[in-house]
Structure formats: structure tokens, C-alpha cells
């Protein structure tokens, strides 16, 4: 599952992942959300792959990986994580409107609480490497780089998928973002 806040580029990340898995010979389904919820709301994309995939969505207790662009969103989707599942999350926090208006508080120490709940958590700041690569918008690709550590697919296969999904003029920047996510400090 790729989760985040509308506008953070979750769709592109899921498309890169889908393209990679297709090239690796899997049946793939990617389920996206368009429309109203994209406007700064909580967004989720499901990516399922295997020999043959029926349902396009991931249900409670079924996600092997949750890649989260924002800490609170990782917490929101914890219930979807499979028993041995990993949460790979950006530690950056974006206040949702109920927090901005004072109707709710942003929970503290979420990464620790997720781990205490039994999730295998890989929390890191994805914004700094994205900015180092040249754009804060490449957080999505930094996170894909981080995710790539958990799979045995060749780095070149990821890069090929990436090149097929981003405009030519942004390829170098995104490759750098991917590399920084993949090679950054060890888990």
C-alpha cells in the first residue's frame, strides 16, 4: 500500500512500482483514488502482484508493505498491515485540518507506537534526501528507493520502470532521489 496526503505524488510511486512488477513478469493490479479525496485528503493506492490477482484492493491484515509519505497516514492504515508486514514511512508530519483548527491533536511518538503495536517500522526523513536530489516533490521516489531495499529486483529494473514513468527532463533528478533512498543510512 502506498499512502499519503493528496498532492504528495502517491500515484506516480504506485505507477513506478506497477511498471516494475509487470516487467518482472507478475500479474499486477494497482488501484488508485482520483477526484475529491485528492485535495489534501488522506489517499491510498493499492498495489497487488502475483501469479494471478483478482481483487484490486488490499484489506485489513493483508498488506506486506505499507509505504507512507506522512507519519499520521502510516498510523491510519496500520490495521491493513499483515502479521509480518513492514511499514516504511517518512517521518515528516503534515497537520490535517482537524489539527489545524484545534479540534484534534497530532499524536506524539507515532513511529515508536507503531513498533510497539508489533509493526516492523522503518522510519526516516525522506524530505531531506529529496531536497538534496533537487526537489522536495521527489519524496515519492526516495521512498521507492527505500522500498527497493526489501526486494531482490535489480536496481537497473527499478531505474527502467522509473524512466518509463517520469518525463525525460526529470529522469536524472529522480534517479538521484531513488539512489539516495536506496543507499541512505542503513535500516
Amino acid at each position: 500500500m502506498i499512502v499519503g496526503v493528496g498532492g504528495q505524488g502517491t500515484l506516480l510511486a504506485s505507477r513506478v512500482l506497477g511498471r516494475l512488477l509487470l516487467a518482472e513478469g507478475f500479474d499486477v493490479k494497482v488501484s488508485e483514488v482520483h477526484g475529491m479525496s485528492q485535495r489534501g485528503g488522506s489517499v491510498v493506492t493499492y498495489v497487488r502482484y502475483g501469479r494471478s490477482v483478482a481483487s484490486p484492493v488490499i484489506d485489513a491484515g493483508q498488506a506486506d508493505y505499507i509505504v507512507s509519505f506522512e507519519l499520521l497516514e502510516a498510523a491510519r492504515w496500520l490495521g491493513h498491515l499483515a502479521p509480518d508486514g513492514h511499514i516504511i514511512t517518512n517521518t515528516r508530519q503534515i497537520d490535517p485540518m482537524p489539527v489545524i483548527t484545534g479540534a484534534a491533536e497530532y499524536p506524539s511518538d507515532l513511529a515508536a507506537k507503531l513498533a510497539a503495536a508489533g509493526a516492523r517500522v522503518d522510519a526516516f526523513d525522506a524530505l531531506a534526501p529529496a531536497e538534496r536530489a533537487g526537489s522536495s516533490k521527489s519524496v515519492n521516489i526516495v521512498l521507492m528507493g527505500r522500498l527497493s531495499r526489501y526486494f531482490e529486483f535489480a536496481e537497473t529494473a527499478w531505474e527502467r520502470a522509473l524512466s518509463e514513468c517520469v518525463p525525460t527532463r526529470f529522469i536524472d533528478m529522480n534517479k538521484e532521489a531513488f539512489r539516495l533512498g536506496r543507499d541512505g543510512s542503513p535500516v
Partner: peptide, 14 residues
């Protein structure tokens, strides 16, 4: 699935 044990504030579209 697992539960966090506390409420997660909603994030409606804005």
C-alpha cells in the same frame, strides 16, 4: 489487523 490503541485524527480533503 493491528490497532494503534488511540484515535488517529481524520484527514478530510481541503
Amino acid at each position: 489487523g493491528r490497532t494503534l490503541g488511540e484515535d488517529v485524527p481524520a484527514r478530510p480533503p481541503v
